[in-house]
């Protein structure tokens, strides 16, 4: 290693070769919200919009923290990363999103969110 180069620990997403148990082969059919997250994230990175890159989304997922990475659902990680980037890039504001979340919850008759 070159002098002065920062020694960075192995990322918690970088799994190749780690000890792990048998592969659980049970599957679930994607729920509608999971598809919507996938499609939205695809639009955000597509050639027409280029609002973010796939690399930024992955980097954002890797930055959510090990507990989040290991406890959140796959498409929750995607949406959390996309949300962070949408805010960081100034595409939408926190107030806009919070306001719309409350409005949607009211519209759907859901309890107030966390």
């Amino acid at each position: 290693m070159a002098d002065g180069e920062e020694k960075t620990p192995r990322g918690y997403h970088d799994l190749g070769g780690l000890p792990a148990g048998p592969v659980d082969r049970s599957e679930h059919v994607l729920e509608p919200w999971e598809k919507r997250v996938d499609v939205l994230c695809g639009i955000l990175v597509d050639r027409k919009r280029r609002l973010m890159t796939i690399d930024e989304r992955r980097d954002a997922i890797e930055g959510l923290g090990e507990d989040a990475y290991n406890s959140m659902k796959y498409y929750e990680l995607w949406m959390a990363a996309a949300l962070k980037l949408v805010l960081d890039k100034g595409i939408l504001t926190r107030d806009e999103i919070d306001g719309r979340v409350d409005e949607i919850r009211a519209r759907l008759g859901l309890e107030a969110g966390p």
Partner: peptide, 19 residues
């Protein structure tokens, strides 16, 4: 609608509608 919508499902709707 789906039987249960988690917070990120709602966030997706919000981001999508706003964009």
């Amino acid at each position: 609608e789906e039987d249960s919508l988690g917070q990120y499902a709602i966030v997706e709707m919000a981001v999508r509608e706003l964009l």
